[in-house]
């Protein structure tokens, strides 16, 4: 098999796989939430309700795609694409196994941070372009929340980066052969997870869309497949953060007996499940509480974590 063909197959299967997982998460999330709330969830369409995904897709694709006349059309059009593209692009640097990865970039971690910081625009500009009060408030919240949490998301990663001595995600996984980084970098893992929840604005931290206050926040005015893009973008984001936690702190594809990809998927799905469990269990904090948690607790802890990690590494040298 030639090199080019191999890369094309990998790229297509990664995109296809990620999109399938993201679409399937619609069903997974509803079933899991139902499980934790003593309900059944969608179990009518197809076996176990699996075809619900298809039904939802048909619904969202055939819905009227309405652009409000007062909206800023070009920006309104652009924003749903940004979130889907930035999250999908990040999967290019995720090593599913030592051989299955799209681009072995030597600055993989930074590429992820860059893409996630561009993802902020999607939400912020969507809020602005809708020209509606609720959307604007959602967009403002999203901008402040996401750039705040990006700061210590980056800082929390650096512990793992320092231990591995590389920004390359594949090298980071290989460096965890002896011990997963969740043990030496437990604080980093916790902070990264919390920041990841805030970054994907998932449920305890879904203040940009807070339906009880802001209708649907930044995507109040979106309908049809544009809304669908936000929806899918959110699920891709969950998959992405889960995959990154797996790669950075839980040894990626490493594991006994089973093939590497299976290990990777098991670990990733575990964290996806945890994301959904958080949604089922926790209420939404107030906005100032969210910001206070970020700047007054997570930032100092992540800086401390970084300093201690550096100190121990220097002492051990």
């Amino acid at each position: 098999m030639s090199e080019a063909l191999r890369s094309i197959i990998i790229i297509l299967s990664v995109i296809g796989g990620v999109m399938t997982i993201a679409a399937g998460l619609i069903w997974v999330e509803r079933r899991l939430l139902a499980l934790w709330q003593d309900r059944y969830g969608p179990n009518r369409v197809g076996a176990f309700g699996l075809l619900q995904v298809l039904a939802d897709m048909i619904k969202v694709l055939t819905k009227e795609d309405w652009i409000p006349p007062f909206a800023d059309k070009s920006v309104f059009f652009l924003t749903p694409a940004i979130i889907a593209i930035t999250t999908l692009l990040t999967f290019a640097v995720i090593p599913f196994t030592s051989t299955i990865l799209v681009a072995d970039l030597n600055i993989g971690v930074l590429f992820f941070l860059a893409m996630s910081s561009l993802g902020v625009y999607s939400v912020t500009l969507a809020g602005w372009a809708s020209a509606s009060k609720y959307s604007l408030l959602g967009g403002l919240r999203a901008a402040a929340q996401m750039i705040s949490y990006e700061v210590f998301m980056g800082l929390s990663l650096m512990g793992a980066v320092m231990l591995a001595g590389s920004f390359d995600l594949r090298v980071i996984v290989e460096a965890q052969r002896g011990l997963w980084y969740v043990v030496p970098q437990f604080a980093g893992f916790v902070i990264f997870f919390i920041a990841g929840v805030a970054e994907t604005h998932r449920l305890p931290f879904d203040l940009p869309e807070a339906e009880s206050e802001l209708v649907a926040g930044y995507h109040s005015e979106y309908s049809g497949m544009k809304f669908g893009m936000f929806f899918v973008g959110e699920y891709i984001g969950i998959t992405l953060i889960s995959a990154l936690i797996t790669v950075l702190f839980f040894g990626g594809w490493l594991g006994p007996v089973l093939p590497p990809v299976v290990w990777f998927l098991i670990k990733t799905f575990f964290f996806i499940g945890f994301f959904i469990l958080l949604r089922a269990a926790l209420p939404r904090p107030r906005y100032d509480q969210l910001m206070a948690l970020g700047w007054k607790v997570l930032l100092p802890v992540s800086l401390l974590n970084l300093a201690v990690t550096g100190g121990i590494m220097l002492a051990g040298r």
Partner: peptide, 21 residues
């Protein structure tokens, strides 16, 4: 309390479902 809440919700996995089919 947050961890307790998560654990309590997780334990609901083993409860019977209240939905009438």
């Amino acid at each position: 309390s947050v961890l307790k809440a998560i654990w309590a919700v997780l334990l609901h996995m083993f409860r019977p479902r209240v939905t009438v089919q």
